Structure formats: structure tokens, C-alpha cells
Amino acid sequence: MSWLTSYVRPKIRTLLGKREVPDDLWTQCDSCKQMIFSKELEKELNVCPHCGHHMRASVPDRLRWTFDDGQFTRIELPKAPVDPLGFRDQKRYSDRLKENRAKTHLDESLVVAHGRVGGQNAVVAVMAFEFLAGTMGAALGEGLVAAARLAVLQDAPLIVFTASGGARMQEGMISLMQMPRTTLAVQMVKDAGLPYIVVMTNPTTGGVTASFAMLGDIQIAEPNALIGFAGPRVIEQTVRETLPDGFQRSEYLLEHGMLDMVVKRPEMRERLGQLIGLLRERDAAKAA
């Protein structure tokens, strides 16, 4: 039991009499451990007002923050085979999917929508870390292909927000095959002469990093996001050396040329609009 539940909440109840205090009134920052009013945190787009730490964001919030006036249209994604390997560990894979769908109200770890960003048409795909840690399976591959086709159909840029623990082990080789499949989806967008922008959020790891997350015309990351293939602990154990401070974090990768920019969340929509405008002008100039 934390000091918030054991000390702060009883004090608030004493001050307010017998009225019940909502469980979600406060949120503790993962980084500085400061307590923040949940309503204040919502206004700050889940960025800690004390230390600037970017907390995880849900898919609905990410879409609302990205599109102009929070207006967008979600598309229905193709259905992929459920539990193609009949996989079971401590639970059946099919049961895990049912539990996560009930908990998150999402069908899978990718959501695709279209609307306007910075006054310009755009297709946005958002990975849902809250759904099985944003792992990549056949459904995600199908979803990204659908997003690419929609971008080509609408003559619009494709923006992908990544957040993933990597490939989905319950789908075995089928999951690994989504690496070339998503790469082909990206190439479809590029062959059409459309911008492909990737925004990496915390964490972006595994097969996602090794495929479509690193293929953007512009590579963006949120501050202090963990980005890499294997985790730092695994790398240290493998090479038997101490890694530099900040290794695999956004700022380190920017300094070493793997990112084009690190953008704070409240500035993201405006920056994306600027980039879309610049890239479309470039493409129009090439075509002229």
C-alpha cells in the first residue's frame, strides 16, 4: 500500500467528511514520484508539470491530441485469424485476446483513423501499448497495410505512432513475418510519393523497431522514450560492458543520428502539420 492510499486519502476523507474520494483523483508521476491532480494532468496531455516526464497515452487520447479539433474518423481494419497456432502458456491465447479486448475496448494493438492535421489531410495509425504491450501480430500487419492503402487512396501522408514490446510470441513465425509485410506497406506509401512520418513513443522495441518504425522520411520521438531492439539489460549481459548514460533514449539517439528530432507532446500536432506542408511542397516541386 502506497503512502497515497494509506495517508493522503484518509486525510482527504477526514477533511471532506464522509464523502467518498474518487480513486482516480490523483496520479503519481512515474519519474519524479510527485502527485498530480488527474484533471491537471489531462490538461497537460499526460506530461508531468513538475519534471516534464511523458507518461503513456491511450489510443483515444493520442488521436484526439493529433487531429485538428480532436475530430477524426476511425476505419474498420481487416480481420486476421485468431490464435492460428492454438497457442497456450499459462492461459490460452484466445482467452488473452478476449480479456484485453474487454479491458481496453480495442480489437487489436493498432487503430487507424483519418482526418486533418495542421489543416491538411492525413492518415494516422496508433499502436496501443495497453493491448498486450502493443505487440505485433498478424492483425497489426493487416492494419498497417490497410492504413497504407488508405493513405494512397486519399493521397495523404501516413503518420504512425509506435509503442510496442516487439513481436507477439503467441503467433510465432507469423508474427515475425509482419516485419517484411509492414515494410512493404511503407514502401507502398513511398512509391506513391507520399510522406511517411514515424513518431516513436515509450517504449518502441523489438521487431517494430527493426521494421516499419525506422523507415520514416522523418523520424520523431517523444522525450526520453526507450527505443531499441533488445533492452539495455540484455545488451549489457551480452557485451558484458556498462552502457553509456541515456543509452537507447530519445536524446541519445538524436545525438547519434538515428532521429531527426525530439518533440514534446504539446508541440506535436503543430510540428506534424509543418512537416506535412514542407514534404508535400517538396514532392510537388519534384513533380513539376
Rank of each mutant, 00 (worst) to 15 (best):
W3S: 12
W3G: 04
P10Y: 12
I12Q: 08
T14W: 05
L15E: 07
G17P: 01
K18A: 13
V21T: 14
D24T: 14
T27P: 01
T27E: 12
Q28I: 14
S31G: 01
C32L: 02
C32E: 01
K33S: 10
M35E: 09
K39L: 11
E40D: 08
E42H: 06
E42M: 08
E42T: 14
L45R: 15
C51H: 07
C51W: 07
H54R: 03
H54E: 11
V59W: 04
D61Q: 12
D68H: 01
D69R: 06
G70I: 11
E76D: 13
K79T: 14
P81E: 04
P81S: 02
V82N: 04
V82P: 02
P84K: 00
G86C: 03
F87I: 00
R92L: 10
D95Q: 12
L97C: 03
L97I: 15
K98C: 05
E99T: 14
N100H: 13
H105L: 13
H105V: 13
D107C: 00
D107W: 02
E108M: 12
L110N: 05
L110P: 07
V111E: 13
V112G: 03
H114D: 08
G115P: 02
R116L: 13
Q120Y: 02
V124P: 10
V126F: 00
E130F: 09
E130K: 06
G134H: 04
T135K: 09
T135C: 07
A138M: 14
A139P: 02
E142Q: 06
L144N: 03
L144D: 05
A147N: 02
A147K: 00
A148W: 03
A148G: 06
R149E: 15
A151F: 00
L158E: 03
I159S: 02
F161R: 05
A163F: 01
S164V: 09
R168E: 14
E171F: 11
M173P: 14
I174M: 05
M177L: 14
R181S: 10
V186F: 00
Q187K: 08
Q187F: 04
V189H: 01
V189I: 07
V189M: 01
V189R: 01
D191T: 06
G193A: 05
M200A: 11
M200Y: 02
T201E: 11
T201D: 07
V208E: 06
F212Y: 15
M214P: 00
L215S: 07
I218H: 08
I218N: 05
E222T: 15
A225W: 08
L226F: 12
L226D: 08
I227E: 06
I227H: 06
R233G: 03
Q237V: 06
V239K: 01
R240W: 07
E241K: 12
T242V: 11
Q248A: 11
R249K: 14
S250I: 03
L253W: 04
D260W: 08
D260A: 05
V263T: 13
K264V: 13
M268R: 02
R269F: 04
L272W: 07
L275D: 14
R280Q: 14
R282C: 10
A288V: 12
